[in-house]
Simulated assay, not measured.
Amino acid sequence: MTVLIATLGYDEKFQLRAVGRWFGRGLSKVVVVGSFDDDKARRALSSLEDYLDKLGIQHERVEVNPHDMTDIVVKVGKLLASLAGQDVVVNLSGGMRIIIIGVLAAIILREAKVTIEVETEDFAHLATFTSGDLMPVRLTEDHIKVLKAIREGYTTINSIHGYLGMPLSTTWRKVKDLKDQGLVVEDNGRLSLTLKAVVEIELHSFS
């Protein structure tokens, strides 16, 4: 089951689209984060909640103070803690910028494992990444060599070991480090790069 957390401002269109994407894919609950003192914000919230009621989806709201970053981070941090172990998607396509940044800060500080999605204003593109992509990494030259080898198509520990001439035990440790830091994933014995790894390779070429 999936819980959708969505930031909301004066317009609910992005949140409605997010619900539409996840409805039928195990969506069990929607949590709306925002400030609802303004009439326009309340109307957007009411419209979204009416839609969720029609679909039979459980929902709740987390009201935050947009003038108090601590309030945003603490309330969202407590929400994330209460959802630990569940599949959580955070949609940041709408709402006030300061609330969006506060939600991101809470995710990073809590080291919450969530999927994050942001839709462009023209609805043409949906960017999706994991919270792990936001976490800092510690890489050596050997780590970078392994990442580049995987990019070149060497997707097993043995093939990386042969391609780089790196001792097998060292190759195994470097791959484990990369997996632990969210840079590499393994599926059916094959290694692949995450978005975070691709970015790190590109940034490393300028360092």
Rank of each mutant, 00 (worst) to 15 (best):
P136H: 06
E202T: 09
T155S: 11
R25Q: 15
H143D: 14
R61A: 09
I72L: 02
G77V: 00
S35G: 14
S169D: 09
L134I: 07
R17T: 04
V32R: 05
G102L: 00
L134T: 01
E141M: 08
L168A: 14
K174C: 11
W172M: 12
L52D: 08
P66I: 08
A149L: 04
A81P: 00
A127C: 02
L203M: 15
E152L: 12
K13A: 03
Y51D: 13
I201M: 11
V185F: 13
L183K: 09
V33P: 03
G24W: 06
N158Y: 15
T155A: 14
V74N: 05
V146W: 01
Y154L: 05
I150P: 03
H125V: 07
V198S: 15
Y154S: 11
T115K: 15
L4N: 10
Y10W: 10
I101S: 15
W172V: 10
K75M: 08
V73I: 11
M1E: 13
E49C: 11
I57C: 09
G95L: 02
D37P: 02
D11H: 13
T7C: 03
V90Q: 05
K29N: 08
A81M: 09
R138E: 12
N158P: 08
L16A: 05
F129N: 08
Q86I: 06
Q181R: 05
I107K: 02
M69L: 13
E152I: 01
S169A: 14
R42Y: 02
M1P: 13
Q86A: 14
V185P: 03
Q58C: 03
D39T: 11
V199C: 07
A112W: 04
